[in-house]
Amino acid sequence: MKNKKLKKLLSALCYIMPGAMIILTFHFIPIFYSLYYSFFKGGLGKKTFVGITNYSELITDADFWLSLKNTVFYVIGTVPTTIVLSLIIALLLNSKIKGLSIYRTIYYLPVITSINAVSLVWKWLYNTHNGLLNSMLEFIGLNPISWLFDKNWAMIAIIIMSIWKGLGYNVIIFLAGLQGIPKQLYESAEIDGAGLWHQFRNITIPMISPVTFFVFVMSTISSFQVFAQVYMMTQGGPGKATTVIVYHLYDKAFQKFELGGSSAIAFVLFLIIFAMTMFQRKIAEKKVHYSN
């Protein structure tokens, strides 16, 4: 009996192992390896055990805290605006209008195009002297802005571009959620004489709340890992105004080759995002449910 079970397990593993080996080797075990490596100093060659020094250095590392602050600023700038705008667009698209699939295709276009290419396009739009945005500002009588070269504006410029890039994805998710709300709810509300605002407030918002929560957590997690825009548009500058946590990690690991120290950053990043994921799962199980 026991033998038969083992045989079943082994034959199933024949199918699972080729793929599972890849996942475990490159996407699971390395996180423990990162923890192990964070107790050492050195590059690829010799490394020396230093205990928790990398972590205690991290606590006093002003650049690390700045990068964390910049990342949080980016997340706060991107996520709520994206949610509000994409919900509005999804509502407009859901109002039984013609040409739905054309609009959907257009709004989704920035999402599939590579972040590197669109970063260059926006860098050109943001250009201080010849950029179109400044020409438009001058045209309506405002002072031009040095967008990517002004430490007060650089992150805002990256945020605006990132909202444009990611909007369509969330529109699709919200639209799917809106289409899942039973029509009868609106019909009976209309019979009861409820106006559009009341329907939105008392049916749409509560019914869509699981989707909103999903979008909120997923965008927060992916915004925390922002990198390519920064690399392409500002290289973390001016000064360190747009150095986000992954850019700081990249700089420390692959420019300065401090693999031990950067492993510590990587592990902290993992803990932050893992905590957010766990939080999402807890809430998703308990709190967010249809209110009726």
Binding site: H27, I31, Y37, V246, S263, F274
Partner: peptide
């Protein structure tokens, strides 16, 4: 276990994967 690996952010794996 396999599904759980989706919770690990890719950017946190760059350094250890590079070493591997």
């Amino acid at each position: 276990l396999l599904l759980g690996t989706m919770m690990i952010p890719q950017q946190a794996l760059l350094v250890p994967d590079y070493i591997i």
